[in-house]
C-alpha cells in the first residue's frame, strides 16, 4: 500500500493538534450492528433448515423469518432517517476510477501479493476512498443480495400454510415454490461468500482488523491506518469539531 500525501489542511497532523477521524456515525453503527446480528442468525438458522435438522425446526424457521424482517427493516429505517449518509455511501460504492482498476491489478489491493507473487516486491496500490474497491463491490453485492433474499423470503413466508401471522397468505404452487427456494438458496450462498470475505478482512485479518473496532466501537478510525489505506478519503474530510483539551 502506497501512502498518499495529505494536502487537506484539516486532516494534516501538526504539533499540538490531535486529529481524530470520525468514520462511522452512531446511526450507521447501530444499523450495521442490526444487519450483522440478523445476517449471522439467518445464516445459522438457514443452514439448520437446509440441512433438515429436526431439532427445534419450528423455532429455527420462526427465528429465520423474524431476523429476515430485521435484516430488511434496519436498512429501510436507516435510509429514511439518515438519507445523507446512505446517499454518500452509495455514491462511494458506485464510483469507480483508475485507482480502483489499480487496486484490482495490485492484485486485489495487495491482499493476494503474498500468495501470487511470493518473494517479490509488493505492488503499488493506488490511494483509496472511504471504502476500497473490494469494499465497494462487497457493498453493492450485499445490498442486491439482501434485496433478492428479502423478496424471495417474504414470498416463501407468505406461502406457508399460516402465512405471515395470518395476515398475508399466498398460494404459489409447487413449481414457483421450488423456483423461489432455489433462487433464495443460490443468492444466500453468494451473499454468504461475500460476507465471509468481509468478516475475515474486517475482523480477523491482522492488517485490517482495526476496522472492526471502528465499526463496533466509537466510530473513530485510526489515523495511520486511514492515511495508509484511505488517503484519498482523508483529503476530502472537513473539521466537525475542534476543542482544547487538557493533557
Amino acid at each position: 500500500m502506497s501512502e498518499m500525501e495529505i494536502t487537506n489542511p484539516a486532516a494534516k497532523q501538526e504539533s499540538g493538534v490531535e486529529v481524530k477521524i470520525f468514520k462511522h456515525r452512531v446511526a450507521s453503527r447501530i444499523m450495521h450492528g442490526f444487519v450483522a446480528v440478523s445476517f449471522c442468525t439467518l445464516l445459522i438458522t438457514g443452514i439448520l433448515l437446509v440441512a433438515g435438522v429436526d431439532f427445534a425446526r419450528g423455532a429455527s424457521a420462526f427465528l429465520h423469518c423474524i431476523m429476515g424482517f430485521v435484516l430488511i427493516a434496519a436498512p429501510i429505517v436507516y435510509i429514511i432517517g439518515c438519507y445523507k449518509n446512505f446517499a454518500r455511501f452509495m455514491d462511494t460504492c458506485t464510483h469507480y476510477d483508475k485507482d480502483d482498476w489499480g487496486w484490482v491489478k495490485a492484485p486485489m489491493g495487495g491482499y493476494l501479493d503474498p500468495y501470487l507473487f511470493r518473494n517479490q516486491p509488493p505492488h503499488y496500490v493506488p490511494p483509496q476512498d472511504k471504502y476500497n474497491t473490494g469494499q465497494k463491490g462487497a457493498g453493492i453485492c450485499l445490498i442486491l443480495g439482501c434485496v433478492v433474499l428479502g423478496a424471495t423470503g417474504f414470498l416463501m413466508w407468505a406461502n406457508t400454510p399460516e402465512g405471515i401471522f395470518g395476515i398475508i397468505n399466498l398460494e404459489l404452487g409447487a413449481g414457483m415454490t421450488w423456483f423461489l427456494w432455489r433462487l433464495h438458496l443460490v443468492t444466500a450462498v453468494c451473499t454468504a461468500a461475500v460476507f465471509a470475505v468481509h468478516f475475515f478482512l474486517g475482523a480477523i485479518y491482522p492488517v485490517t482488523n482495526v476496522e472492526f473496532g471502528t465499526m463496533f466501537g466509537n466510530g473513530i478510525a485510526d489515523y495511520a491506518y486511514t492515511k495508509k489505506k484511505h488517503g484519498k478519503w482523508l483529503n476530502t474530510l472537513e473539521v466537525r469539531e475542534e476543542k482544547e483539551v487538557q493533557d
Partner: peptide, 18 residues
C-alpha cells in the same frame, strides 16, 4: 498543558450526485 483535539469527518451536506 493542553492540546487541540480536532475531529474530522465527512462533509455535513451531500452533493446532487450523491
Amino acid at each position: 498543558m493542553s492540546h487541540i483535539e480536532r475531529i474530522i469527518g465527512d462533509p455535513a451536506t451531500i452533493t446532487r450526485r450523491e
